[in-house]
Amino acid sequence: MTIEEKLAELGIILPDAPAPAANYVPYVQSGNLVYVSGQISTDDAGSLITGKLGDGLETSEGAAAAKRCAINLLAQVRAACGGDLNRLERVVKLTGFVNSTADFIEQPQVINGASDFLVEVLGNAGRHARSAVSAAALPLGVAVEIEGIFQIR
Rank of each mutant, 00 (worst) to 15 (best):
F104P: 14
V98M: 14
V77I: 13
F97D: 09
I111K: 09
E89N: 15
G123Q: 01
C81Q: 10
L122A: 09
V91R: 08
V77N: 08
V110H: 13
F97C: 10
I105L: 10
V91K: 02
N86H: 00
R87W: 00
A79Q: 13
R78L: 07
R78P: 14
L118I: 05
L85K: 06
D103S: 10
F104V: 01
E106P: 04
D103W: 09
A125V: 03
F104L: 01
G83F: 09
P108L: 04
G96C: 11
G83S: 09
N112A: 13
R78G: 06
V91D: 08
Q109V: 01
N99T: 03
K93P: 02
V119G: 02
T95F: 04
V110R: 12
I111S: 10
G113V: 06
G83W: 07
G83A: 05
V110I: 14
L94G: 06
A79D: 15
G96R: 01
G126W: 03
S100R: 00
F104S: 00
D84K: 06
V98Q: 05
I105D: 15
R127V: 10
V91M: 14
D116G: 13
R87C: 00
V119C: 10
N86Y: 01
N86W: 01
S100I: 01
I105T: 15
V98D: 13
N112P: 07
C81E: 07
N124K: 02
F97E: 11
L88K: 05
Q107M: 14
A114H: 09
G83Q: 04
R87L: 10
R127W: 07
